[in-house]
Design a protein around this nucleic acid. Structure first.
Length: 674
DNA sequence: CAACGATGTCATACC
DNA sequence: GGGGTATGACATCGT
């Protein structure tokens, strides 16, 4: 038994908004052209930008810019890159939002591929382009297929509501309706900040890694635009895992009539959030149980914010009133069980027509219009992408008992919302654990004391994986174990076995005086549980490793392409120089009385700042040091001319030096002009 | 029904 | 030497 030494707690504060602020500031700087250190020339347009931003987003820029120390560098992009494709990508680099239309998606994709823009390919193009080329004629069956495919991928993008009538398969939005899919948009943007995109089916893919926030709302102004904003993985693995463990705390504010679902990562950054939205959110921490009316208004206004990261401070946890089971399940079911958010209706006003699954009254009329199948699929794909783990967990039962599965609607298009982990969290998040502890105590009622569990309640997700995973992943395994536990008449819940520390485990064994049978069973369960978790970690590491290597391969490939380009350019330059020299020599050789001026010109050319001077200097310059070294210079020149323009020999019949000597020409090669 | 991915379990090696 | 962990191999299950 190992004896623990004195422990030092190390805490980490991770801001959920810092990276967003940085990005936003960079964008502001770019717009003001402040601190921009690179000019990108595309076709005939110039874009000012920050090399660090470009390099961090694009493999191409990374390789081209990281070796440059010159300030105010100008990077001229090859003809493969067009303004049409580059501009959205530049915007994406600074905002994490990609504006695209059916018309320019291919061009963007091409440019993104060429420039090695990360985070876009798999998330976006691989799905979008086939969809757009299909042009919306996707059948329901095809849709299911594509959904399946999407779920197999490791998606990184986001999504939007599915507005298809599940029965008729008809779209509810006319083709000319604009759709905005904004995923994981910045936390500070309120729905009204959604850029009005109209007249064409333009979509906005937002890969902002900053906030998990979903906002679904009509855009108004005659535009049928839905913004579903949520966020992708924003935290480093450990923290991210923490966010996964922690619950979404749904705060309902009756005053602003918004439903907000905060995915509470175990950060406390909410206190520092300065933006108006976040202030609102902070005020909403002390939520009141939502009335039906609240929910109706919130949802029918289509405002559903889901944020990741901010966690109510511990002190507030007790005050915070997360949705109770009925409420949360109601909300979730109404959301998740509908093919589109439009059928999140209420029993009160009966605005939801279950047959038609449309908003008949409360929904702004714009929303009742049809949406193309492609748009819906795209939206759904994007949404899934923003919870990379979503697809893998979609079929797992929600661990939260309180969510009334039976009340779930028929549709499943928004089942992914359930996986925002409204359920799993309360127990996993130490700050919120108390909130549900009353009704989630272990059957035996003897939850481990803090002394028993050596792990800090703020332990890292990796450490806390024990607790979380034995509730989720280990569910099935523990079901069987529970039955066996009943058989051996275990005096404590099986769940405890794997979750407790070894010390606590041994103490409990001592205390309980187990029979050999029980002892064997308990140890077996513990061993399997530990091993199970180890296997999970191992597989996760493997995957991480694979992704990392894939990224490196990508980078190396783009680097190789860049080197090949450089190589070809140098080849061309050398060829140019050879041709120039050849011409020059020929004119010298065909002229029977070559003048010293011509030789000087030749020598200067050789050592001048011509494009190949760098290549030539090692050979030519040292020998052209001065008139005293004429012979040396001549021989060098001889070699050089013989190398570069062999035809000189054929013309002069002899080497250039011999030619010069034959003609009694004294080389007057002088120092090249600086 | 085969293929495939996810997951649990076992055996083993290593620390 | 015992315990914890990592990992390869295999089995099972669901899609």
């Amino acid at each position: 038994m190992s004896v623990d030494g004195p422990r030092t707690s190390v805490f980490t504060f991770q801001s959920a908004v810092h990276s967003h602020h940085v990005l936003r500031s960079l964008e502001e700087l770019r717009q003001k052209e402040l601190l921009c250190d690179v000019t990108v020339e595309v076709e005939r347009r110039s874009f000012r930008a920050h090399s660090s931003v470009l390099a961090s987003c694009s493999d191409y820029f990374y390789t081209r810019l990281t070796n440059q120390n010159r300030p105010n560098l100008t990077v001229r992009l090859p003809d493969e890159v067009t303004v049409e494709g580059f501009e959205p990508l530049l915007q994406f680099a600074y905002t994490a939002k990609l504006h695209f239309t059916k018309e320019n998606i291919l061009e963007i994709h091409r440019c993104a591929e060429f420039l090695g823009f990360q985070n876009l390919d798999k998330a976006c193009f691989e799905f979008l382009i086939p969809k757009f080329s299909d042009d919306g004629g996707t059948s329901k069956k095809e849709k299911g297929k594509s959904k399946g495919q999407a779920s197999h991928e490791k998606p990184q993008a986001v999504c939007s509501p599915n507005n298809q009538n599940p029965e008729t398969g008809e779209d509810r939005v006319p083709q000319d309706a604009s759709t905005v899919m904004q995923a994981a948009t910045s936390s500070v943007e309120s729905p009204k900040d959604c850029p009005p995109i109209s007249n064409e089916k333009e979509m906005q893919l937002d890969l902002s890694p900053l906030y998990a926030r979903s906002a679904l709302y009509p855009m108004g102004d005659g535009q049928d635009q839905f913004c579903l904003q949520n966020c992708g993985p924003q935290l480093p693995s450990a923290s991210m895992a923490g966010a996964e463990l922690c619950p979404l705390s749904i705060s309902i504010s009756s005053d602003n009539e918004k439903l907000r679902s905060s995915a509470a990562g175990c950060g406390e950054d909410i206190l520092a959030i300065e933006d108006e939205f976040q202030k609102e959110l902070a005020m909403d921490v002390h939520c009141e149980p939502p009335t039906d009316k609240d929910l109706n208004i919130n949802i029918t206004e289509g405002h559903f914010d889901q944020r990741e990261g901010p966690l109510m401070p511990p002190a507030d946890c007790s005050q915070q009133c997360p949705l109770n089971s009925v409420q949360s399940s109601g909300v979730l079911d109404s959301i998740s069980g509908t093919p589109d958010l439009s059928n999140i209706g209420t029993d009160d006003n009966q605005v939801f027509d279950s047959n038609e699954q449309t908003f008949s009254e409360l929904t702004p009329k714009d929303c009742s219009t049809e949406r193309s199948t492609v748009e819906r699929e795209v939206a759904e794909h994007l949404a899934k992408g923003f919870w990379p783990d979503l697809s893998s967990t979609l079929n797992e039962p929600l661990p939260l008992d309180s969510i009334d599965q039976s009340s779930a609607g028929n549709g499943s298009d928004f089942h992914w919302l359930k996986h925002l982990d409204l359920g799993a969290a309360p127990d996993d998040c130490p700050f919120l654990r108390d909130l549900s502890s009353s009704d989630r105590q272990t059957p035996g009622g003897d939850t481990l004391s803090k002394g028993d569990t050596e792990d800090s309640p703020c332990m890292s997700p990796i450490n806390s994986m024990e607790n979380s995973e034995c509730e989720s992943d280990g569910d099935c395994a523990q079901c069987g174990s529970s039955e066996q536990a009943q058989e051996v008449d275990l005096p404590f819940p099986v769940e405890q076995i794997s979750s407790m520390t070894r010390r606590a485990f041994l103490q409990m064994l001592k205390r309980e005086q187990l029979t050999p049978e029980q002892l064997e069973f308990v140890q077996d369960v513990r061993r399997r549980s530990k091993n199970r978790m180890a296997a999970q970690r191992c597989r996760k590491r493997k995957l991480d490793c694979i992704y990392k290597l894939e990224g490196e391969i990508k980078k190396l490939r783009s680097e190789k392409e860049k080197l090949l380009q450089d190589h070809n350019q140098l080849k061309l330059s050398i060829e140019d120089v050879r041709q120039n020299l050849s011409g020059l020599c020929q004119s010298l050789c065909t002229d029977n009385s070559p003048q010293s001026e011509q030789l000087q010109a030749l020598a200067r050319y050789v050592s001048s700042d011509c494009p190949t001077s760098v290549l030539l200097t090692p050979m030519a310059s040292p020998s052209l040091a001065g008139p005293d070294q004429d012979v040396h210079a001549n021989s060098t020149l001889d070699t050089f001319l013989a190398d570069t323009c062999p035809e000189v020999d054929s013309v002069a019949l002899r080497s250039p030096t011999a030619f010069l000597q034959d003609n009694n020409i004294q080389s007057t090669v002088t120092d090249p002009a600086p």
